[in-house]
Amino acid sequence: MSAPFDEPGNATRQSVLVRPVPPSALAAAGRVFEHRAYQYRRAFRGSLVTSFVNPTLFLLAMGLGLGSYVNARSPDAFHGVTYLQFLAPGLLAGAAMQVAIFESTFPVMIGLVWRRLFHAMYATPIGPRAVAVGTLAWIAFRLTLVTTVFMFVSTLFGAVVSPLGLLGIPAAVLTGLAFAGGMGAFMATRRTPEAFNAIFRWVITPLFLFSGTFFPVDSLPAAIQPIAWLSPLWHGVELARGAMLGTVLDDPPRALVHVAVLVGLVGIGGSLFVRNVHRKLAA
């Protein structure tokens, strides 16, 4: 038997002398982040491949394949850019939304219900706030990875017209986070993930299709166009598109409104997430 247990009483004696200092609030969230990074290490390679393959396939099929028809038929629909250049930012923001939804669903179920990992964290000096904030920080990191790869692939396809395009990455990360907080907050109140399928089909899929991702919102019937304003994804798509096509600075107030809406959602969703995780853990 080795060190701390050599003699009776050694364990308690030592712990009086060598006290670990409880991590600060920021460090605590960092530890939660670190935990996720450990989990991710094994899945990293596969997930990187997926991050490359998915946008490549979509841009090939929709951007080039279908795009050849769109460009031939409606050459002026996209204000001088090709369909592929129009589509890429839409897909980027849409992918960020989907990644964020997944990352804020199953990990929350695992943390609170299935494996109760969040409960295990709460048995240490880590508090519910650090659990929630660390989880969101991890989602932000995942989003950064996915959107960076997406941006790289888009550049290869010639879909990034302006150096401002790099701003598409933070725009997409912000879009994802706008969904992650609220979704995490909702899943924290569930005992099963059953509602997930319903949310995906009733909310995520329609948002994905009708937020200016595949076609401009102004080709929707005029009556329902204003509804786009209610879609967080639309704000994200507009922002990412403005960045990648270099038009974001043409109308700075408009861009700021998009940013404000998304930041507001991140704030509201994030604080609801913190609140619900706290309620669940400290009952």
Partner: peptide
């Protein structure tokens, strides 16, 4: 409800891609 939503999913695609994008495809 999940079953019912499974029926709506292709409809969303039909409306979005078929009609929405379809206008630009011809």
């Amino acid at each position: 409800t999940i079953i019912v939503s499974g029926f709506f999913e292709p409809l969303f695609y039909l409306v979005g891609i078929g009609f929405g994008l379809g206008r630009l495809v011809g």
